[in-house]
Design a binder for these strands. Structure first.
Lengths: 159, 159
DNA sequence: CGTGAAAATGGGATTAA
DNA sequence: TTAATCCCATTTTCACG
């Protein structure tokens, strides 16, 4: 899973298409990039085996499942000792309402993105994840009023 | 596409599975949730017709495509007049390196998440998107050192 | 990489409950 | 009405050229 894949133009075209709709048939993909279905199959298999494609997933609208509120949070920890850092990290990752978690350099240490039912729900989670942890110095809550762009569409320019 | 879908337990189970891997065959899904393949087919169709499932997509590792650096940015605008706000919004959404864009309440106005080649690349984008816009008062850059969780896995608890 | 055949899957119609 | 069974068109996938 290390170094091998120098993606060629076909790979990039396929990735662009498949990022947008991974249900296109391999024949259809082949037609669009001028390749046989078999070739498309082989490339797609290689791309997912190599981990270039992390996974094929259905993207669900969170509000359809009862989580209409997206909240961005900056978290600063008290103590950056590795084991303590690891403990908070794990508690964030375990929480199903933490949709994304980034470890960042600078004054704050984490950026989290929550999908929650409502403010009460979020408040309960802050208690659980921040106050009870005893290693969160401060956190800053940014309530979103619009998820303007959420796709993970990665640009596929030439190398 | 409005109100109809009271998701039952089967729907939620299917969504949980399909969020993680939308290439599971309908037979396989049926086996896991104790439903026939045909029933799975109908439910999945309804869920995507209703917009509960936004789309089926392949998630690509950005660094495989040459964008190893993830950067979170808080942006505060100068003037919140609706047309000016709309102009900056559009410029953010048009930028392919802006992977996510949230409109937030409070002191700052937007949170952006970039996928870029390196710091030079990011610097060039800040010039283009922030300095040249004349409506960005200030922005705060948070350089990430780890994308610890990026999935949009929506929890599927009972209603 | 492309071709073609074999295997698997998708998705509709029909029947049963 | 909803699910299970069957059936055929489509798709995937493999061996070979």
């Amino acid at each position: 899973m290390a170094t091998t894949p120098p993606l060629d133009s076909y790979d990039r075209q396929l990735l662009a298409l498949v990022q947008d709709d991974c249900r296109l048939s391999q024949a259809e993909l082949g037609a669009r990039v001028h390749l046989s279905a078999a070739a498309v199959n082989r490339r797609l298999k290689r791309l997912s085996d190599d981990g270039v494609i992390e996974r094929f997933s259905a993207q669900v609208r969170p509000d359809a499942l009862g989580y209409p509120l997206t909240i961005v949070v900056e978290v600063q920890v008290e103590n950056e000792r590795i084991d303590l850092l690891d403990a908070v990290t794990q508690s964030f990752l375990r929480c199903p309402f933490v949709q994304q978690c980034y470890y960042v350099a600078g004054e704050c240490d984490f950026v989290l993105i929550f999908a929650v039912r409502d403010m009460d729900h979020y408040t309960a989670l802050t208690r659980e994840l921040f106050y009870d942890s005893h290693n969160v110095k401060r956190f800053k809550t940014l309530v979103t009023m619009g998820r303007l762009k959420t796709g993970m569409q990665v640009p596929v320019a030439e190398s």
